[in-house]
């Protein structure tokens, strides 16, 4: 790096203006990104008659928003209307299930993936089972889950765990398999035990793949929580959605859908934040060749 010598003023100005241009280009892209959703919302809103489309099947965005507002902030009425002031509780029910199922999936999937990727014996004895079970969609597990756990929380948590487990275990396995041989040899040369190699080399080396698995798994976890709440329990966003559909409250259905999308998006951002922090070492670029 050069220091001391002052840079000519015209070059400083040129660099600054290039930076300004880049910043305004970024702002333009951001604006372009929100044009399409706003347009769609406007078309949807304007084609409604008396707040609905398709003969009452689809409420306008405005009506869905009002329904959500009441669902979230109105005073809960005693027993009669379940869509007043219950949104936060509902969201928390679903979020806790996702957290439990996703957490269990990590607890099982990451160590198992590391082991399968690292040891040939583990791969030979476990991998075929995983690959055979994987094509069975979690929806196909619903009846057997209900039969075993009944209409109880653990059934839902189990389905979420199962759904999130596959992408986590498969990506972790891939990451553990692709570890640079030199890193492992270096660790062994420095006296690392087998456990040291797993925890201090294979695990951190596999982290980028693990995070890919976590993001995919979390997406499936939100799918799984809705599906399982529709059938296996009597609370949460999935339960409310199905219930609202039965009583014809399509405005609540729409508000529910948006809530799920929002939660999925926010939880994904959370993982990305965690990933950015845990993988700082990958983003740092050389500053001297």
């Amino acid at each position: 790096m050069q220091q001391g010598a002052s840079v000519p003023a015209d070059i400083v100005e040129a660099l600054a203006s290039a930076e300004r241009r880049a910043r305004s280009a970024r702002r333009r892209r951001l604006l372009l990104g929100i044009v399409l959703p706003l347009l769609l919302l406007a078309v949807w809103q304007l084609s409604g008659r008396n707040g609905t489309l398709f003969g009452g099947a689809l409420p306008t965005p405005e009506r869905a928003f009002h329904a959500w507002w009441a669902w979230a902030f109105a005073n809960p009425s005693p027993g009669l209307n379940p869509y007043l002031g219950t949104w936060f509780d509902t969201v928390i029910f679903s979020t806790i299930r996702v957290a439990k199922g996703f957490g269990l999936a990590i607890l099982v999937g990451v160590p198992l993936g590391i082991l399968v990727g690292w040891s040939r014996v583990a791969a030979a004895s476990v991998d075929p089972t995983i690959q055979l079970l994987r094509p069975i969609p979690i929806t196909a597990w619903l009846p057997i889950t209900l039969a075993i756990f009944g209409i109880r929380d653990f059934g839902a948590v189990f389905l979420i765990m199962l759904g999130a487990f596959y992408p986590i275990v498969i990506n972790t396995t891939q990451g553990a398999r692709d570890v640079e041989k030199t890193w492992i040899r270096a660790a062994q040369m420095m006296g690392a035990s087998r456990l040291d190699v797993l925890l201090r080399v294979v695990l951190p080396a596999a982290l980028p793949s693990i995070f890919t698995g976590l993001r995919l798994g979390l997406g499936i976890a939100w799918t799984a929580v809705i599906v399982s709440e529709m059938v296996a329990v009597k609370s949460g966003l999935g339960y409310v959605m199905w219930d609202a559909y039965y009583v014809g409250r399509m405005d609540i259905v729409i508000a529910d859908m948006v809530s799920i999308g929002l939660l999925g998006y926010l939880s994904d951002r959370l993982i990305v934040l965690l990933e950015t922090w845990a993988l700082r070492w990958r983003r740092i670029q050389s500053f001297n060749g």
Binding site: E180, T182, W183, L207, W281
Partner: peptide, 10 residues
Amino acid sequence: VFQEAGLLPW
């Protein structure tokens, strides 16, 4: 000592 150093990048 390895050819490309083989340091643990994290």
